[in-house]
Amino acid sequence: MADEQKPEGSQAPLPAKGEAAGQPPKPPTPAAKPAPPKPAAPKAPAVMAATPWDGELARSVKEQFGDGVKETSTYVGQNFIVTMPDAAIPVLEYLKAEAEFDYLVDVTAVDWPKRAERFDLVYIVYSFSRNERVRIKTQIPDGCKPQSAVGVHLTANWLEREVFDMFGIEFAGHPDLRRILMPDEWQGHPLRKDYPILQQDQRWVQENLGIESGQ
């Protein structure tokens, strides 16, 4: 099909992008390397800074938990509370009982492999009556067993199983801590940053699927 064979790298360099036949006016980005930021596009560092959140709710949580709460901040309109590991569940309980945060949207984690407290554990709660969403974050080291939130929100059951499956964080007091997405016998926790994208549990693949994974 190819009329002429040329080595792959010899693609003709294109003129500035954006003159491709489309209506959408391309941002006028010259070919220069450092993409000049668009007039209104905020620069990354300026955006990334969270500002202190000093709402009524933030104050009452701080008052209630004192040193348990490290920080209350907001970031593009999203409020979050950073707590000590022990205080995360009591804060969830408090928000549910006192401020009607009755819907646990998600429990997830973030892996920071170089940090001493390796994981951020993040709880997102929503209040239907207040129409407000709050994140509760806490930093825990690898091997730490944070308290399960199942006693506060039943939804936490599967969400924490997912965090366990993907990050290897075990929750103390969880009624049924098993893997939820990966097979039960799988080795490794895929969403840890030191788990490469091509990695597989070769033994599991061979034993259960009868194939070589080819990776």
Partner: peptide, 11 residues
């Protein structure tokens, strides 16, 4: 910014 998403002459 690298225009490699387009098929080259060999495509």
């Amino acid at each position: 910014r690298r225009p490699a998403a387009l098929p080259g002459p060999g495509a």
